[in-house]
Design a protein around this nucleic acid. Structure first.
Lengths: 168, 168
DNA sequence: ATATATTTTCAATAATTTTTGAAAGTTCGA
DNA sequence: TCGAACTTTCAAAAATTATTGAAAATATAT
C-alpha cells in the first residue's frame, strides 16, 4: 500500500474510531491528519486535504486546541496561522484521560455523593437496592479516579513497566 | 432527597453519561433503571417508567442483552418476559471493557498492522512520520490490549489491591 | 385449532448533530 | 488609517441517529 492510500485509511478509521468515544468525526480526522503531518498545516491545507468547509475546519481546530491536543504555531514571516499536533502518543492519551476525567467522571462522582444519602427506610427493598447500586458505582469510580490520577502523572515507561510487573 | 427524585436524577445522568461512551441515551437509561430495580421488570414496566414506545424499549433491551448487561428472566406461571441487570458493578465494567475491546480496539489494531508496512522511502519525511505515528499507536494499543485482558479475567479485589500496591 | 397475549419488525417521522458558506470581525503591513 | 489577508461566527441546510406505532410474527392457554 502506498502512502496516500494508507493515509486515507488512517484518517477515516481514526474518524470512525473517534465517534465511538464521544468525539466527532471531523475533529478526529483533523487530529489524525495533523498526527501524521511532519510539518504544521494551515486551515487551508486541512480544508483542502479533508474536503471540508472553512467554518467546520475552524470550529474543530479550536475544539482540538481546547482539548489540548493541537497547538497554534506562528511561523516567522508568515501571516497565516499553522497548527500542529502533539506526536507523543502517550502524552496524547494522558491528555485525553485528563480531560474526560474532568468532564465526565468528576461530575458523575459529585452526583453520586448526593444520591447516596437519599432519604427513606433502608429496610425498603427499593431504597436498599438504590443505595447499594449508587454506593458500589461510587466505590469503583473513586478507585478509577485515583488510578487515572497516577497515570496522568506517570511517564510511559514507568507506568507500563509497573503494569507489566503485575500482569506479566 | 426522596427516592423517586433520586431515581430520576440517576437515570437521566446515566443516560447522558452513556452518550459520551458511544451508548445511546435510551439504552443507558433502561440499564440504569434495571440496575436500581430489586426485582425483574417487564417491557411494559420499562415503557411506562421511562415514557418510551414499545418498539424503542424492545430494541434497546435486545441491544443490552447483546452487550451481556441484561438477561431475560422467565418467572414461573407468568406469560410475560422479565428483564434484570447484573448488579455487580465490577462485572458490568469488565463486560463493557470486553465488548468494546472486541468491537473497537481489535479492529483498529488489525488496521494499524497493515498500515505500518506502507511502501515508500523511509527517508521521506512524510513516510517516516506516518510510520512512526502508526507504530507508536500500535505499541500503546498492544499494551492496552494485554492489560485489559488481565483486567477482564481478574477479580475486583485482586485487581484493585494490585493497582494500589503500585500507585498507593 | 383458535383466540389471545406478547414480542418483534420496520417504514415513516422526529429529534439531534454536523456542516456549510457568506457575512462580520480581526490583524497587520504599508 | 486603509485595505488586503486571514479568522471567526452563526443561521440555515444537510446528514445522521433515535423514536414511534401499527402491523406482522410468535408463543401460549384452553
Amino acid at each position: 500500500m502506498k502512502l496516500p492510500e494508507a493515509k486515507q485509511h488512517f484518517i477515516s478509521s481514526w474518524g470512525a474510531f473517534g465517534t465511538h468515544w464521544g468525539i466527532n468525526r471531523t475533529m478526529a480526522q483533523i487530529h489524525a491528519l495533523l498526527l501524521i503531518s511532519p510539518d504544521p498545516l494551515t486551515q487551508d491545507d486541512i480544508m483542502e486535504d479533508l474536503n471540508i468547509s472553512r467554518g467546520n475546519t475552524n470550529m474543530n481546530i479550536r475544539e482540538l486546541i481546547n482539548w489540548g491536543l493541537v497547538e497554534r504555531v506562528i511561523l516567522p514571516g508568515e501571516r497565516k496561522e499553522y497548527f500542529t499536533a502533539e506526536k507523543d502518543i502517550w502524552k496524547v492519551v494522558k491528555q485525553i484521560v485528563k480531560e474526560r476525567k474532568k468532564r465526565e467522571l468528576e461530575p458523575m462522582m459529585q452526583l453520586l455523593d448526593k444520591l447516596e444519602d437519599v432519604e427513606g427506610d433502608k429496610k425498603d427493598k427499593k431504597v436498599k437496592t438504590f443505595v447499594d447500586t449508587v454506593s458500589s458505582i461510587k466505590r469503583l469510580g473513586l478507585q478509577a479516579d485515583k488510578t487515572l490520577d497516577v497515570m496522568i502523572k506517570a511517564e510511559e515507561n514507568w507506568f507500563v513497566s509497573n503494569l507489566m510487573k503485575i500482569f506479566k
